[in-house]
């Protein structure tokens, strides 16, 4: 049996195809990722982009739509995926996906392009407490990306640069617009770019951390979502949460899609 999970994010579409497996001597291994695919929709509208991303993933995996038992969808644009069997919330999908990768995880921090959230998870991968920020963009990846563009760096370079800084420059503005003006002021004051990068990533981490504290920080902590690719952000988050370690899964941006595919598979049983 193959199931599909789609995460319709605001910046990219993630598709995970999951296959049921049987491994002798390891009954706990029930599913394996057959294919994970990420697509940037560009100028396409959401329906068209979802169809294209799904078809690309199927083609890459060498299967057809008829081979897929169920398609579950999550993410900000989940209502626009007309061919989906069912939709699940980002919290449930992220919690299940993170639990599959790291069964010991109790706190999942999900930082995507447009929203960040903290989810408390039980041993079965069920979300038991969550808090998101429906309003503020300063605690999300698109803010860090915009600031990295202002410094003419890629998000990856931005994260690496922040690790070269040993300064702590507080950014007081809560709003992205005002925070951006603080960054412009720092540029005009000839502040080294690595110090600005650290200030921005520290600020994003502190916003996220304030939200995660609502649900309570319980180790182990896993970070999922695209911002997990930024080494600087991971360092800032670890410091803000005051934890020993933050677990980073492979393909962090696709964990919610993986969670969807897992929930789809479990509901077919």
């Amino acid at each position: 049996m193959i199931t599909a999970g789609i995460d319709m994010g605001s910046r990219s579409i993630k598709v995970v195809l999951l296959e049921e497996i049987k491994v002798d001597g390891a009954p706990q291994l029930k599913y394996a990722v057959k294919k994970a695919h990420v697509m940037l929709p560009g100028e396409m509208d959401a329906d068209e982009a979802a169809e294209k991303a799904y078809d690309e993933a199927l083609k890459a995996a060498g299967v057809t739509r008829d081979d897929i038992k169920a398609v579950f969808v999550t993410g900000a644009g989940r209502s626009q995926v007309k061919f989906a069997t069912e939709g699940v919330t980002e919290m449930t999908a992220g919690a299940r996906g993170a639990n599959y990768m790291f069964p010991q995880v109790r706190t999942v921090v999900d930082v995507g392009a447009e929203e960040g959230r903290g989810v408390k998870v039980d041993a079965d991968g069920k979300a038991i407490d969550f808090a998101g920020n429906e309003k503020c963009a300063a605690g999300a990846g698109s803010f860090a990306e915009a600031m990295s563009r202002a410094l003419q760096m890629s998000l990856k370079e931005f994260g690496e640069a922040s690790l070269r800084s040993d300064k702590t420059i507080p950014m007081n503005a809560q709003c992205t617009v005002f925070a951006e003006s603080e960054v412009v002021s720092l540029i005009h004051a000839s502040t080294p770019s690595q110090d600005i990068a650290k200030a921005v990533l520290d600020a994003v981490a502190s916003r996220i951390c304030a939200m995660v504290r609502r649900v309570g920080i319980e180790e182990s902590v896993a970070l999922i979502g695209g911002m997990a690719h930024s080494v600087g952000f991971v360092a800032s988050l670890k410091k803000a949460l005051d934890v020993q370690d933050v677990l980073l899964p492979e393909m962090p941006e696709s964990i919610s899609a993986l969670g969807c595919a897992l929930i789809a598979a479990e509901r077919q049983q």
């Binding site: 407490d129 808090a131 998101g132 309003k135 503020c136 809560q174 916003r207 609502r214 649900v215």
Partner: peptide, 15 residues
């Protein structure tokens, strides 16, 4: 599950 709906901004935390 405890579901928190709301946001935090410069003026406070509203959930």
């Amino acid at each position: 599950m405890i579901a928190n709906y709301g946001y935090k901004d410069g003026s406070g935390e509203y959930y």
